[in-house]
Structure formats: structure tokens, C-alpha cells
Design a protein around this nucleic acid. Structure first.
Lengths: 197, 197
DNA sequence: TTATTTACCGACTAATGGTCTGTAACTTAC
DNA sequence: GTAAGTTACAGACCATTAGTCGGTAAATAA
């Protein structure tokens, strides 16, 4: 690799990436409260001031980490679900994929535990809506255009479903034997929707 | 009111009560992060040291506030639900009562938003299980002894149901017109349980 | 080549959670 | 009733930490 003259954008980008990576690791492991700006900066090989140059505050850094994590999760779920044929099957498959993804305590800490408290309910909700909820809604739209669902349920359904899914993930983490019961419950919620559709 | 010689227990009790009241108010209004120990102590007419004499830390104070709030909510819901005849009706009635109770932003902030982040997931879960979940489970037990439910669902059901309920409350707060959809969804979850029971 | 902007550092400030020491009021032992 | 012990606080102090403020060196624009 030639010693290339580092452009500012490159430096900036790689610094940001390092900060996001370190932030994800530390926030995810120790939680927002127990992680100091200094810790994150140090883990990214930088001073606190450097970090605050890229992100205006600790909360702003967390928000960026949170949004990245949300994107990652949704992409993963969507990719897995895409393999299933038909919207109903994709819903069920996606649910299982998210149950798996939320096994990761880092993901849980960031998206479900610290998220609402740090960002505030309103912003948390907004970001969730743009990612997770949007995926569910899109799948339901597909279902309708496939003809397997006549009336599109309101946003409340997607949220309640996703919330039950989150909680199911927690239940499974505490007691793995609950997984079939959780999946059954989710399938029933989905099924009920498609029956009456 | 005669100037009674204040016993220590009386002083202590009223001080604790004042701190809990002030804590609920401030934590509920501004969130845990934005509330200082000093603020709470001052609002309770006391110094920071006084507060820390009664509660070993800021988190300990929050935990006490949280648990009190949880008790309050459950008592309120249980009292309302008790009027309905039959376990299934009590479930549906209780769900509506909680939707109403969670209209209060103070209750929401404390129990749903700050709770998990401040107490940590494990402790939050444990306290929730002792109150909210316990009420649901008890009602389901009643249903079985009434004969309207043969197989008792596992804890996962109660949690997922409660979680959907919480989320439904949020949806309604954002858009009141969603209330019927939310209630329908909850009733369906309950109904599905009793049908197959 | 000069001027400006950008990435970053070190020193400082302000706020805050928690500790330590002291004191007055209450309580228990005698 | 009084001495000894305990309890409910207050105030001073300490350590951590989020965020600000110059300053410097590298990169970019003029």
C-alpha cells in the first residue's frame, strides 16, 4: 500500500467510523450511563475533543450509533425474510430472524434499553418507525398487492406486533424453552391478520 | 393540630414520602438523566445529604419511585377490572384501564422509558413481573378455575400481551383515532386465547 | 504562495453523584 | 432522670465527567 496523501474527507470518514464502532461496543456493553465520552474516544484512538468535533454531544454520538444499529438489524431481517415465498411467510420468517438477531446483548442494549431513555421517546419512536416499522408496513403492502390481504391494518398493528416481538425475544433469552410458544403467538397474530384480511 | 413531639419514625416516614413524591414528579417530568439529586432533595425541602441518608443512591431512589408507580398502576387497573364479570371480560376491561392510565406522561416516563435503562433490564423485568405480569397471570388462573380456559399459557404470553398493550398506549397517544384498532387487536389476542383454551 | 477551513489536542469550567464529618434531636439503658 | 447510643439531617469536600475555548498543524481554496 503506497503512502497516500490523506485527504481530509478520508481522515474524517475513518475517524467517524472508528468512533461509531467504539461507541457501539462500549454503549452496547456497559450502557449509555456507564460509558464516558473519554472511554469511547480513547477506544477509537482519539481525544475527547476529537470526538466532540465529529459529534456535537454524547447523546448525538449515541443517536448515530443507534441509527446505524437499527439499519443493520433491518437489513439483516429483510435479507433473511426475502427468501420466503409470499408476504405472510416473509412476515413469519422475518419475525424469527429478528428473534435471532436480538440474541445479541449489544443490539438489545442499544436499540431497546438505552434507545428510548437517551433519545427521548419521541425521537426513538421516529427512528424506529423509519426502519423496523417501515419494513413491516412494506411487507403488508406487498401482501395486499399479492391479494392475500384486503384491508391494510393501521400503524398500530405494526407497532404492537413489533413490540410483542421484542418482548418475545426477551422471554426467550430468559428461558430458551419458551421459543415455540413465542413463535406460536407471533404466528397467531400474523395469521389472524391474514384470515380476516 | 397539637404540636406533637415528633417521633423519629414519623419524621423518617414523612421525609421518605416527600422524597418519593418529589422524585416521581421530577423524574416523571424531566426524565432520570435530566433530574439531579439536588433538585429532588430541594423539592422535598431537604438537602442532598438528607436524601442520600434515606436512599443510598440516585438509582435507589428511582427504583423506589418506580416500584411505587408500578403498584399504583396495578391497583388502579385491578380495581377497574374487578367490576367486570368473568375472567375474559376482566382481561379486556383491564387492558382498557391500563390504556387510560398510561395517558399520564409521568407514568410512562417512569415505568416504560427510564425504567429499563436506569434499573437495568434484569431488575426492571423482575419488578414488572411481580406487579403487572402477576396480575395478568392471576386473571388467567381465575379463568382456568372458572373453566373458560383449559391450558394456562406460559409467561411469554403475558409479557407479549402486556408489551403490545404498552405499545398500543403509545400509538393512541400519538393518534387518538387509533384507539379502536388497538382495542380490537388486544381483544383478538385475548379472544384467541380463550377460543382455543 | 497566501488565506481559510478542517481535524484534532490540552487546559479549563461547571455540574453533579457520592463521601466524610459534625450536630442536634430522639431513643434506649440504667 | 440522665447518660450513652442511634437517627436524621446539614455542609464542606472530592472525583468524575460533559462540554467549552484557545491553539496547532495539515489540507484545501484563492
Amino acid at each position: 500500500m503506497p503512502a497516500e496523501k490523506t485527504t481530509q474527507k478520508a481522515r474524517s470518514d475513518s475517524a467517524r467510523a472508528a468512533l461509531l464502532k467504539a461507541g457501539r461496543k462500549l454503549f452496547g456493553k456497559n450502557g449509555f450511563l456507564s460509558t464516558s465520552v473519554n472511554d469511547v474516544a480513547a477506544a477509537a484512538g482519539m481525544s475527547k475533543s476529537g470526538l466532540l468535533h465529529h459529534f456535537s454531544s454524547k447523546a448525538a454520538l449515541f443517536e448515530a450509533v443507534f441509527e446505524e444499529e437499527e439499519k443493520r438489524l433491518v437489513a439483516q431481517v429483510a435479507a433473511d425474510a426475502a427468501e420466503a415465498p409470499g408476504a405472510e411467510a416473509r412476515m413469519k420468517r422475518g419475525a424469527r430472524a429478528l428473534l435471532d438477531a436480538l440474541n445479541d446483548p449489544v443490539s438489545r442494549q442499544i436499540t431497546l434499553i438505552d434507545g428510548p431513555a437517551v433519545l427521548g421517546w419521541t425521537k426513538w419512536r421516529k427512528i424506529e418507525a423509519e426502519h423496523g416499522i417501515a419494513l413491516i408496513q412494506a411487507t403488508l403492502e406487498e401482501a395486499r398487492s399479492e391479494g392475500s390481504l384486503s384491508s391494510l391494518p393501521g400503524a398500530a398493528f405494526s407497532r404492537m406486533f413489533l413490540s410483542a416481538l421484542h418482548e418475545g425475544a426477551f422471554s426467550i433469552i430468559e428461558d430458551k424453552s419458551q421459543r415455540p410458544a413465542v413463535e406460536a403467538m407471533l404466528d397467531q397474530m400474523i395469521g389472524g391478520l391474514f384470515e380476516q384480511g
